[in-house]
Computed example of a mutant assay.
Amino acid sequence: MTGRRAFLAAVLLLVAGCAGPAPAAPAPPPPSYNDTDVMFLQMMLAHHEPAAKLLTLGEKQATRPEVRAAATELSAAQAAETTTIRDRLAGWDEPLVSTAHAGLHEAHGGLPLLDDAELLRLAGLTGAEFDSTFLTMLIGHQHGAVELARMETTSGIDPPTRELAARTDETVRAQIQKLLRMVG
């Protein structure tokens, strides 16, 4: 009987050895987003904050109806985009503002900054001077959104965020053209 047990044990070991090594654990899925995606969304939020103040001034103080209407239209579009951006960052459990590279967000990584002093200066203007200055400031500010969007479409990997950036690039460039026609 002992020989038979030894034989069975040997057969079991041989069969177990033929199964090969245990399968490796599946590799974790690749991340759905990268640092560029997060930075784009965070910088767009930072970009929208002063723009909201600028657009509010435009809605209240513009004298030309088409300038006032453009401010209202852009304000509504920006509010919807801000909600989308906040939701994406929250879904990734990422902060709304980066603390990792705080200096990078100053002036949006080198892009022109629309600060409180500029807004205060604009608020003191009236009539055609307000409209012209408002449009010029808005065009410059909107150019920053195009630059941010292009950064994302070049280096981001998250498809919905890249789509947002592509839409931003396209719509903001169209908005800039419309605003430029108002200046002229």
Rank of each mutant, 00 (worst) to 15 (best):
H101F: 11
L125C: 02
V38I: 15
S75Q: 13
E94H: 10
P159A: 12
F7Q: 12
P65F: 05
P112E: 13
Q42D: 04
L45P: 07
E147Y: 01
L96S: 09
T2N: 10
S155H: 11
L8Q: 06
L8D: 11
A52R: 14
G109H: 09
G184K: 05
P65W: 03
F130K: 07
T84E: 13
G58Y: 10
K60C: 01
A166I: 05
K53Y: 01
A102P: 13
T72W: 02
G127R: 02
P65Q: 07
G103P: 03
H141S: 09
R121V: 07
C18N: 04
V97L: 04
L114I: 04
T63P: 01
I176L: 05
R4K: 06
A71M: 03
D35E: 14
A9K: 00
F7D: 11
L120K: 14
E106W: 04
G3T: 11
L12T: 03
R64G: 04
L13S: 13
A90F: 03
E66H: 02
D87C: 06
V67P: 07
A117D: 14
E49C: 03
T168R: 12
M182T: 01
L122R: 02
M151G: 00
A62F: 07
L14D: 03
G91D: 11
M39P: 00
L74R: 07
A10N: 00
L12F: 02
E129Q: 13
G184N: 10
A9H: 00
L122Q: 09
P65D: 14
A51G: 09
T154L: 15
A62L: 11
L120Q: 14
T126E: 15
R150T: 11
T82Q: 09
A107Q: 08
A117F: 01
T126C: 04
D37A: 05
Q78N: 08
L89V: 08
T56Y: 02
K178E: 12
G109K: 07
T161P: 06
L125A: 13
A27G: 00
L8A: 08
G124S: 13
D35S: 12
L138H: 04
R167I: 05
D35P: 00
A19M: 14
C18T: 07
R150S: 08
I85C: 12
F130E: 06
A46G: 03
M44A: 06
M137K: 05
G58D: 00
E106V: 15
G3W: 09
L111M: 10
L13A: 15
S98F: 06
H48L: 10
I157Q: 12
E106D: 05
H141R: 06
Q177L: 11
V172G: 09
A174T: 13
G109W: 03
Q142L: 14
T99S: 15
D158L: 09
I176N: 03
A145M: 05
T83C: 00
